[in-house]
């Protein structure tokens, strides 16, 4: 998939972007993704199972994430859990979305709409 094709998929929803970010740190199962998303957004993005798996299904179909055949530690883990990994394509999409958001933030900074730390 070329960059222009991926650009058409932007902007990502905050939930989708948060999932990709959560997976950037390493392979995770559903509940860990859910917790990580809540943490990284200070509770602003709260996913519930329906939305989470709705998005994971779409990302699997698009090849943004892959499901792992093996669990990191089968002995310590529930066998019903499935782990997901960010694919190269998913990383590219997340990167493009991050750039898009950064340019918006820069535009807001230029117009004095973003307070510097401590202000």
């Amino acid at each position: 998939m070329t960059n222009p094709d991926l650009q058409k998929r932007l902007p990502l929803s905050p939930a989708a972007f948060s999932i990709l970010l959560a997976l950037k740190d390493g392979d995770k199962h559903g509940y860990t993704i859910l917790r990580e998303v809540a943490q990284q957004s200070d509770g602003a993005v709260k996913l519930l199972p329906g939305t989470l798996y709705n998005l994971l299904k779409r990302m699997l179909e698009d090849g943004w994430i892959v499901e792992l055949d093996e669990r990191p530690d089968p002995a310590l883990d529930d066998e019903r859990r499935r782990y997901y990994r960010l694919s190269a394509l998913g990383e590219k999409v997340a990167g493009l979305e991050a750039e898009r958001l950064a340019s918006l933030v820069r535009a807001a900074q230029k117009r004095g709409m973003l307070l510097a730390d401590g202000e």
Binding site: G30, Y31, L34, G50, Y53, K57, D78, R80, R81, R82
Partner: peptide, 17 residues
């Protein structure tokens, strides 16, 4: 198809939540 693929995981995530 969705149920077969994800229902088990969803039930478990819900349980943990």
């Amino acid at each position: 198809a969705f149920r077969t693929r994800f229902a088990g995981e969803m039930a478990q995530v819900f349980r943990s939540l």
